[in-house]
Design a protein around this nucleic acid. Structure first.
Lengths: 160, 160
DNA sequence: AAAATATGTCAGCTTTATTGACATATTTTT
DNA sequence: AAAAATATGTCAATAAAGCTGACATATTTT
């Protein structure tokens, strides 16, 4: 419990302002740098395929949840249908993802990675996984569980 | 040490592929969702000012390191001069950041937040800090230190 | 005096997102 | 059966935030 929640607030106009030492700048910045470098890992691989981070996210989630629908994917990524459309079309045209008409509801398009899509998804995840493993090892025993719980709580709607 | 580093690799073409259970998909996804929601916190505030995330980062770092030069900022953000230029100009024109000619080297422009800039930086950091504090509290005692070390190791050039 | 440095700026391009509008196929409701 | 709702696709226009390349200016270093 170091360095936050002292409730030392003041006002500028009608905006609540917390003084320096009540804000956890340290972890805010660590998170920024950690994520910046974490996401830079797959960039070299993506460049070769001519894809960007948007493609990465789509291939990743479809690989992880085979058969998910377009609506599922939109909900996961929190982007609009039109934003997804271009990226998804490119991945389908390039043979990384294929669509199957839903067996129950024929309006739905269930999404699957092809062999190539699966290989891409894993090639992209590999350096990230390695970075995580190294960081956890250096952090010490028990780190994985603590980090897991912390990250889960950082997410919206983590009721507990 | 659960769920990674089994070194169970195979090849597709000349791309190294790790099988399912050798990749730490769990933490990769937790990190994605945590960061997605963490960065969404300040968005409501930014919209009011007509600024975006790029402005956020600039105001944040200048507030944290008053007197930093343009070159320092470019190095921190890892973006190009031309990308920074537009954002920085808007912040200066709006009165959130001011420039002072370097006292030693008059080519340099040392950057400072104004009162308004400081207030903005802290208003933006506040919900993020609160989210972190809540997550750490829920994770349990000792979480802060573990999370800090883990995040530091996730950054490039963190030679233990 | 020449070269290097720190910054600023113009012009054009790319990626990734946005909104709005509308089309099609299919399922559900009336 | 007709109407409404749903899942998806697509066209067009726009925005934010990055990029490269080129060049200008002021200042410091060589």
């Amino acid at each position: 419990m170091a360095g936050q929640s002292k409730e030392n607030t003041r006002y500028v106009g009608d905006t609540v302002v917390h003084d320096d030492d009540t804000i956890d700048f340290e972890i805010i910045e660590l998170l920024f740098f950690a994520y910046r470098d974490f996401t830079s890992d797959p960039d070299a691989i993506l460049e070769k395929s001519g894809f960007g981070r948007a493609h990465h996210r789509v291939v990743h989630f479809v690989d992880r949840e085979p058969g998910m629908t377009v609506a599922d994917l939109l909900d996961t990524l929190k982007i609009t249908k039109q934003s997804l459309a271009r990226v998804l079309k490119q991945l389908i045209d390039s043979g990384y993802i294929r669509q199957v008409t839903g067996p129950e509801d024929r309006r739905q398009r269930m999404l699957y990675t092809t062999e190539e899509g699966q290989a891409l998804a894993r090639a992209l995840a590999e350096p990230q996984s390695r970075r995580i493993a190294d960081a956890l090892a250096k952090t010490g025993p028990g780190a994985r569980d603590t980090v897991k719980r912390f990250l889960a709580c950082m997410k919206n709607g983590a009721g507990d």
